[in-house]
Simulated scan of single mutants.
Amino acid sequence: MNRTTGSRTIGSKTIASRPAGNRPTGGRTAARTTGPGAGTAPPRRTDARRPHPAPATARRRERLPRYWFAERLLLTLSGRRPVHWMLGHTLGAAYDQLAALAPYAPLQPAPPGRSPAVRHCDEFRPSPGVIEAFARIEAGDRLLALAFRLEHCTDQRWRCSAVELGGTRR
């Protein structure tokens, strides 16, 4: 690299680059320009009614116990994951409720191809270490309610202790 002009020669081509004294101090110094997906835009959604949450919003949501559990309950109740996938995250009664609901796949999308999604999830904390959460689930053209209770156990993990769907119990 020629330090005075900030360029380098590769073969017979001269490529201009940043002068040596102007490099950033942390992180990556150059954007990725090769490899799969480089220079291509992400696929566009055809369903404009419900856009994907922004990546930063999705990451913030994932850190909240209520969204984490709502997503996993949705995957189980839509038939995309087996019930035993939630075994370590539920207490006895909640696991039994999931096992009773899951064979019906109540959150399976009505028109095939459109996956159900958590539109919104909120919580109420009746006492320390307890979260009563409620979520709005969009499955096709239906909007369903999902309610669940989380308890902070002695091993410092949140576990689901009750699940109800659409206000009725099966």
Results as ranks from 00 to 15, higher is better:
C160K: 07
T29Q: 13
A38Q: 01
A48P: 00
R18P: 05
A117W: 08
P51A: 13
P111C: 13
W158H: 04
P112M: 10
T9L: 02
C153L: 13
R59C: 14
R157S: 03
Y104F: 12
G21W: 10
A94V: 06
P128M: 02
R159D: 10
A117V: 15
R32Y: 02
A147H: 09
L73H: 04
T4Y: 08
G79K: 06
R72L: 02
R81L: 10
F69I: 14
T168I: 11
E132D: 10
A110Y: 05
Y104Q: 11
T29V: 10
A70G: 11
S7I: 00
H52P: 02
A162K: 08
T29L: 11
G140W: 05
A93Y: 01
Q156P: 01
A99L: 10
H89Q: 08
D96E: 10
R45P: 04
S12Y: 02
T9A: 04
R125V: 14
A100N: 07
F134V: 08
I131Q: 03
P128S: 06
T4A: 13
A117H: 06
H52G: 09
P109W: 05
D96G: 08
T57L: 07
G39T: 08
A30N: 06
Y104R: 15
P65T: 03
Q108I: 09
R32L: 04
P82Y: 03
H120F: 13
